[in-house]
Amino acid sequence: MPLFERLYNFAHWLTQDREEAEDLVQETYAKALKGFSSFQPGTNFRAWIYQILRNTFLTSRTGLKSTATVPLDLGGDDETVPAANDTPESILLQRSDQQLVQEALGRLPVPYREVLLLCEFEEMSYQEISTTLAVPVGTVMSRLSRARRALRDTVQELRGNKGT
């Protein structure tokens, strides 16, 4: 998939709104064109343009709201919940509930949603994510770990709601 479509997809995931996503992508391209001289050849172009998109989003109204209401890296260093109840059956069930995962991902706070998308969907390395989010690699790892746990919890919560 070309970068433009990936950028749009990412923008839509962040804003959760088509019109806002379009504005965000448009502004990203305008900024990228204007500031292309600041791009250092040989460095990661993808991380550079995602960084522009993300910074643009964070300074937008929706972006400001999303970060104002959700403290970054919330949740402390809880122990990973043992996966004792995971069985082949439950895994099969998980495979079938992509709908739940999609909904849960949309519900996650922006910092978790974006780090998950960058890692799982964009398949960026920790280093690339670190560049894009402008945080140390260690922070990327801890945020990713919390985001995954939060996603799992949310999926379970949604499943529980649906089950009852």
């Binding site: 749009y8 997809n9 995931w13 088509r18 379009e22 495979r95 995962v101 969907f121 964009e122």
Partner: peptide
Amino acid sequence: VQQKRAVQAVGQRFTPN
């Protein structure tokens, strides 16, 4: 791995006009 794949699968959700 299953969760990773699930996010990967649902990640592609929105296509531009």
